[in-house]
């Protein structure tokens, strides 16, 4: 077995990849032109190109950029497309050399992407005078339509205001602060138009938080002591209501009910 190991040992060094390059033609290039170089690397089976060793797109020299490197794996090997760009501002036709790039294979072999040369020429005669009319017009500008952006701004503002209002409502801020319910004030106003003592009954219900009947008056006065000065008149009101609505002889005094509603409203607003 020893002989086999010895026979296999130098094998990787022998497996030099075959690099064929399809270089750009060697003349007729100007400032700013892109030169496309296609390289095919035929690889022995099981060997790959170390991707980290591929040339990086970069400024290779002050006059030369490598703009893109595209690699494509095929059955026969690796197809590389290198896109160079020439920035050499030539004063006369000039030969430029693109350097070779080293690459490394997975078995440790180092190979080279071949360089190439080309002739680049000036864009115009060096001695021709420069005149103003040689300036080319600006490209036509394209107007940007601001309407979608403005509509978006408007919508966002509306959403902001709405959510602000919603938050204020939820938190009962500012205009959403609950005003104290004033059932007696409302009842006094309503009774000025329509002298119905049941309106005052409803207001008393609202002030008590539940339906208030004459027998509940002590509880009501205990819960709302500010109305205690009117206790007698409230009792008289309930007695009159009982007589009017449940008794047999009904002739209620609505004027007194209206006056009572006004006085209750006054206490409710803190005026007395």
């Amino acid at each position: 077995m020893k002989w086999l190991a010895l026979a296999l040992l130098p094998l990787p060094a022998l497996a030099q990849p075959v690099v064929t390059a399809d270089n750009p033609h060697g003349y007729g290039w100007w400032l700013g032109d892109e030169l496309v170089q296609r390289v095919t690397i035929a690889l022995p089976p099981g060997v790959t190109v170390d991707p980290a060793s591929l040339p990086r797109p970069r400024a290779v020299d002050y006059w030369l950029d490598l703009r893109a490197v595209e690699a494509e794996q095929a059955d026969t090997g690796l197809h590389l497309t290198l896109r160079w760009q020439n920035f050499y501002s030539a004063l006369e036709p000039s030969w430029r050399e693109v350097p070779a790039q080293p690459i490394r294979l997975s078995d440790g072999t180092v190979a080279e992407l071949p360089g190439f040369g080309f002739v680049t020429s000036p864009l115009r005669p060096l001695t021709a005078p420069s005149t103003a009319d040689q300036l080319q017009p600006d490209p036509r500008f394209r107007l940007i339509d601001p309407m979608p952006a403005r509509a978006g701004l408007g919508l966002s503002l509306a959403a902001l205001i709405l959510s602000g209002l919603g938050l204020a409502w939820h938190q009962a801020w500012g205009p959403f602060r609950a005003r104290p319910a004033r059932p007696f004030t409302r009842a006094a106003r309503a009774m000025a138009r329509l002298p119905d003592r049941r309106l005052l009954h409803r207001a008393l219900d609202a002030a008590f938080g539940r339906v208030l009947i004459g027998a509940d008056l002590p509880q009501f006065l205990a819960a709302r002591p500010e109305f205690r000065p009117l206790a007698d008149r409230l009792a008289a009101f309930f007695a009159a209501s009982d007589a009017a609505f449940f008794g047999q002889h009904a002739h209620p005094d609505t004027a007194e009910a209206q006056a009572l509603a006004r006085d209750l409203a006054r206490i409710e607003r803190g005026r007395r």
């Binding site: 119905d196 409803r202 219900d205 539940r210 339906v211 449940f246």
Partner: peptide
Amino acid sequence: AFDTIPVPAE
């Protein structure tokens, strides 16, 4: 029911 049903009702 007693807390809710108004009396005398309209």
